[in-house]
């Protein structure tokens, strides 16, 4: 049986909000009987774009992570729903707008905060994966259609095919510890859940400070050498995908013709260590 999945690449998301806007366009003021009641004009975020900024001026990066319902295989919302939430054969988790009436407590059942309360209609609501459109033969949901960067992809595949994609594309899920087996997968989640150490190498030569290109920068933890890199033409280096709060690191810098340098730091979150001067 083929099931619907979403694959979301955090590195490709440019925060255009086309997904969020098209979701609202599709669901605000529109009633899709058998699927979901109209979404209120404001307040709901069926696809919730989260922002993460890392580092300090001027070594920073920013990323966005669209977050819809995960359409879990083992969905806590279904367990809590007394039958008003079900998973369809094609993988889509649906809240029955009639049966779920009044069940406000369901918004607390989801570990991903993907369920929203509609005061006016007295129902919990969430991303339907645009099931009403897919059932009419649409090839993809609204948000995916409107995404200009291919940060969002809808994939209808059986389990074997999906696990092949999962491995080939190095996908991850959000909150694996919640064990809900999401049908929504992420690429490049490190931009959200990992951090970097970055900095710049420069030297004062005859009174002129210049960036040092091609310096060898080594990252160590204790005595273990973790990785090394060469600085670019701005003298910049960056070690990424490090765990937050992962303790003490040592950075060693070597450049022929210059004295070596070493910096030690305690890593909590992404850190721009600034410029290291070799002289």
């Amino acid at each position: 049986m083929k099931k619907w999945h979403l694959i979301i690449d955090v590195e490709k998301c440019v925060d255009c909000n086309n997904c969020f806007m098209s979701c609202k366009d599709e669901h605000v003021d529109n009633d899709w009987p058998g699927y979901t009641r109209p979404q209120p004009r404001h307040g709901h975020r069926w696809i919730n774009i989260m922002r993460a900024e890392r580092g300090q001026y001027p070594l920073v990066d920013v990323s966005y992570r669209p977050t819809p319902c995960m359409h879990c295989e083992d969905a806590p919302c279904i367990h809590a729903s007394k039958g008003s939430i079900t998973k369809r054969a094609d993988g889509i988790v649906m809240i029955d707008p009639v049966k779920a009436k009044g069940q406000q407590e369901l918004i607390n059942a989801c570990p991903y905060q993907a369920i929203w309360w509609n005061q006016e209609q007295d129902v919990p609501q969430k991303c339907t994966l645009c099931a009403h459109l897919l059932d009419q033969g649409w090839k993809q949901p609204r948000c995916v259609q409107a995404c200009p960067t291919s940060a969002l992809r809808a994939v209808c595949a059986d389990d074997t095919e999906m696990s092949r994609i999962y491995t080939a594309e190095k996908l991850e899920v959000l909150k694996p510890e919640a064990n809900t087996q999401p049908s929504v997968f992420y690429k490049n989640l490190y931009r959200f859940n990992k951090c970097f150490i970055g900095g710049s190498i420069a030297a004062n030569q005859k009174g002129i400070v210049d960036c040092i290109e091609g310096a060898k920068v080594t990252l160590l933890q204790g005595k273990d050498k973790l990785t090394e890199t060469l600085t670019d033409n701005f003298g910049d280096f960056k070690f990424d995908q490090l765990a937050e709060n992962s303790g003490k690191y040592v950075i060693q810098v070597q450049m022929p013709g210059f004295p070596a340098a070493e910096v030690t730091l305690e890593l909590t979150s992404s850190k721009n260590i600034g410029t290291i001067y070799l002289s």
């Binding site: 255009c16 909000n17 086309n18 969020f20 806007m21 098209s22 609202k24 366009d25 605000v28 003021d29 004009r41 409107a146 200009p148």
Partner: peptide
């Protein structure tokens, strides 16, 4: 074709 986010807001602007 692609669109800008404000294009997708038009229904809400009309109504």
């Amino acid at each position: 074709t692609t669109v800008s986010p404000h294009t997708l807001a038009w229904k809400s602007m009309i109504y």
